[in-house]
Design a protein around this nucleic acid. Sequence first.
DNA 1: ATTTTATTTTAGGTTTGTCTAAATTTTATA
DNA 2: TATAAAATTTAGACAAACCTAAAATAAAAT
Lengths: 220, 220
Amino acid sequence: MKYSVSEENYIKAIYHLQQEVDRVNTMLLASTLETKPASITDMLKKLKTKRLLDYKPYYGFKLSAEGNRVALSIVRRHRLWEFFLAEKLKFNWEEVHEMAEDLEHVSNKKLIDKLDAFLGYPKFDPHGDPIPDQDGKIQKEEHVLLSELKLKAQGRVTKIKSHSKKIMDLVAHQQINIGSRITVKKVFEFDESMEIVIDGKTTKNISQQLAKNIFIGNAQ
Amino acid sequence: MKYSVSEENYIKAIYHLQQEVDRVNTMLLASTLETKPASITDMLKKLKTKRLLDYKPYYGFKLSAEGNRVALSIVRRHRLWEFFLAEKLKFNWEEVHEMAEDLEHVSNKKLIDKLDAFLGYPKFDPHGDPIPDQDGKIQKEEHVLLSELKLKAQGRVTKIKSHSKKIMDLVAHQQINIGSRITVKKVFEFDESMEIVIDGKTTKNISQQLAKNIFIGNAQ
DNA sequence: ATTTTATTTTAGGTTTGTCTAAATTTTATA
DNA sequence: TATAAAATTTAGACAAACCTAAAATAAAAT
């Protein structure tokens, strides 16, 4: 089955919101898609008739099993393209998301599977988010916040919690990248700031607020 | 300026038809786009107001300088993606065209330019058609038909004239690919068929009809 | 348990890109 | 050159995806 760009964007948005809140509603979806509630209702009805959504007017909605399958295939495309853009075309991993928003709607399965092979079947995208495989299976991320890492502990950066410009600015300036190996050298009791070594080379001091936004884990 | 997928498809179709016939008309465009004449008229008006087209009702139309510029950038995207699909994802060069039809509408300039760099600034796509550069410049193809090649002459296959299934079948079976080095070993006077050597390895006999559909030239 | 507020849906309108059918203009033919 | 045929355009309709404004329903507050 082939879905329109709009349909795919709705499915994807619902999928992502469902990972974060236990009940997605019309208002929330309208604000994330920057559209009006009335437009949401229209699309909900459409997705319901296509059996991608369990939806009862006024009683809320959630993706059906099939809707979930479709969402995972969109997420797969998005993250594979992100990986391609960062790894092969050498884009900064902060700028790949937007371009992947367009590319994700190119849905030829054979193309996506060959792209996957070309990239070496990556398990995580440049943001550290897992890439679903052909069957929609996702490799579980096991990561802890850098702020919770013990003294002398070591690990690789797998993900930055928020992708806001403010955080990305700081993270980039501090030369902290996905895949960077971090060693905790010192934790200062006063403000819980920490001294870390990045890739065994650079030593940096970072605030607790920042450390609370950096995940260290098992990716790649 | 950003154009819709439909607008881009019209511009591209007009561009290609203009290379082949001296006067594109509503009927011809309708048949190549598999749409109705009335739809063509609608779009012509729209493209005219956007100054992509010189158009006078009943008196025909052709791309403006700006329209040509836009067309070349679409062709550039299409052919770069074709090259990527064949070269990197290892698709047969017969099957890349259709997939590139979708990818060509992803129009982020920075993305396309980085893709170009990643591919090594190729001058010709897998079909042997020239890829416009960032400024829309096209490297001239200087090729002759294989049927016109002299005895003992050598050259590389740059293009197959028609992409029809019937020809592709035969060409694939004879192991003639874009880039194959061809040496003419013998030409038989009786039927003008020729014996050729492909890449210094395989010897094949091909009919004059086939030889008239294979271009030998300066590509790559 | 009402009433007020917030959320959601309905009703009806807009734009884009398509269509059919009818009208117009050009081209070809007798 | 008048008429027939073909090509083109206009008029009006339709689906997709959005909108505004009003109505319906649910949730919160008194």
